[in-house]
Design a protein around this nucleic acid. Structure first.
Length: 424
RNA sequence: GUGGGUGUAGCUCAGCGGUUAGAGCAGUGGACUGUGGAUCCACGGGUCGGGGGUUCAAAUCCCCUCACCCACCCCA
């Protein structure tokens, strides 16, 4: 049979429920902080990503799902969502506003070999905060991300660095280039290539030799201009003041090329849960020089978050429990009354936020009905057969205690909802 | 893209040249005719991932392929 494409997933209960609840929690969290939802297409012009994220990055140069449509347009499934959001901001004239705060949850696509926490279709959530150049925006964002993960009972570490701005980065880059050039023969093949394209990324290499060489490499903070240095110090000071677990990692470089100044990653027990940074030039780049607006943002992986929650915590505490009710007709005569009760229950609860689940069923044998209810972990089985019909009654059985009682059909709604399960 | 591991029942796995491929759990039916969970009994279910080869004989050995898992690269 036809199976799902490599690196993709089907999500079924309970994981699908867990994902839904996590997304709701994240959405609520950011709405409280003034962020509004945004959705953009899952495919965009290839150019958008090539110009923004940078041709040097693996994400864009090697891992993008590119295709042409029937008119020959060059399109790509989005490998990240920041560039599309910035494009949408410009295209919809949101730049009229002084401050733009947006959040999103959506799929990204990267053509890579799948493994743990890495899929070809993945879900990212994130925010983009535009309009404030001051370190206070960096603080707002990083602090809120820290609190977001804390709300899932995860005490994450924030790894942070500053990679400077267009004024000071070239100098640093030059220093790095000079330094690594001296050790060129000892660098791995990838890094020899990186030396010409983007020497900053050598710092990120996991090759032991490169790591050793990187250890003595000039650090970005030593070359920051006055403004960048001030920005970075103010940010780290205030984060420390509010006890955010900060790890200053002066070799932290991100995979997308549009960042400047602050870059950070969120880690839990060695797993990268999220990453982000400042991208003050991206609006200018995407609008082809027409507009300017400072910005900062982050993106987190939904699959990594759910996987950690599944591994580390009892997910039932996130799932919440419905009161599950099985409504069973045992005879043809009972059908009409049972369906009547069913429609009244639906009228009462439909569209409201409550925690009831109702299943309408028919069985010949009561023992079968109870067995099914047991398997389904139903809280109540309500049934009507020959016995009940005669007296115009329905039996309500509590599946946990085994106790049951008969009530008159005419009193059912009030008795059951108000006296038995306590829902108005 | 590189390297390693695993594919046998719905699930977890055993079998690793030799009858008709097994177990536990799950499923269905019954013991028990309107009262579930426990116990016991019976039953159903498999092109042994797919293709090719070696052999009298292949789930088992060899080759190819696909999928999943893990590590590297890279990253969410």
């Amino acid at each position: 049979m036809v199976e799902r494409p490599k690196g993709t997933n089907d999500y079924i209960h309970p994981e699908s429920s867990l994902r839904k609840i996590i997304v709701e929690k994240i959405s609520n969290f950011f709405e409280i902080l003034g962020y509004k939802p945004i959705e953009t297409p899952i495919f965009e012009s290839v150019d958008l990503f090539k110009r923004s994220a940078g041709v040097v990055s693996d994400i864009v140069s090697k891992e993008m799902y590119e295709f042409q449509d029937k008119k020959g347009r060059h399109l790509a499934l989005r490998p990240e969502i920041t560039a599309p959001v910035v494009r949408a901001i410009i295209q919809n004239n949101l730049l009229q506003q002084q401050i733009i705060k947006l959040y999103y949850v959506g799929s990204i696509f990267r053509y890579e070999k799948p493994q743990k926490d890495r899929y070809r279709q993945a879900t990212q959530f994130g925010v983009e905060y535009l309009g404030i150049e001051n370190y206070i925006a960096d603080f707002e964002l990083i602090f809120s991300i820290y609190k977001l993960y804390q709300s899932f009972n995860l005490d994450v570490e924030i790894h942070v660095n500053s990679i400077g701005c267009k004024d000071c980065r070239p100098q640093y880059r030059q220093k790095l280039y000079e330094y690594f050039s001296k050790h060129k023969e000892n660098l791995c093949n990838d890094c020899q290539r990186r030396l010409e394209e983007n020497p900053l990324r050598i710092l990120d290499c996991k090759n032991p030799n490169c790591k050793l060489i990187s250890k003595e490499a000039p650090k970005s903070i030593e070359y920051l201009c006055q403004n960048c240095d001030k920005h970075h110090k103010e940010l780290t000071n205030i984060l420390k003041f509010y006890n955010v677990p900060l790890i200053e990692n002066h070799y932290l470089v991100r995979g997308l090329d549009y960042y400047n100044r602050t870059v950070f990653e969120v880690k839990f027990e060695g797993v990268d849960l999220a990453g982000g940074g400042r991208y003050d030039y991206l609006v200018n780049q995407i609008s082809e020089g027409k507009y300017d607006m400072p910005a900062i943002g982050f993106a987190g992986g939904l699959e990594r978050l759910t996987n950690i929650l599944k591994e580390k915590q009892n997910i039932n505490k996130f799932l919440g429990e419905n009161i599950k009710i099985n409504l069973v007709s045992l005879t043809n005569e009972a059908d009409k009354i049972i369906t009547g009760i069913y429609t009244r229950i639906i009228n009462k609860i439909a569209g409201k936020k409550n925690s009831i689940e109702v299943n309408l069923m028919k069985f010949e044998k009561l023992s079968k009905a109870l067995k099914i209810a047991d398997k389904m972990k139903a809280n109540y089985t309500l049934f009507m057969g020959e016995e009940e019909i005669k007296e115009d009654e329905i039996t309500i059985k509590n599946m946990e205690t085994g106790k049951q009682e008969k009530i008159k059909v005419e009193n059912f709604m009030i008795k059951f909802f108000e006296e038995i399960i306590n829902i108005e």
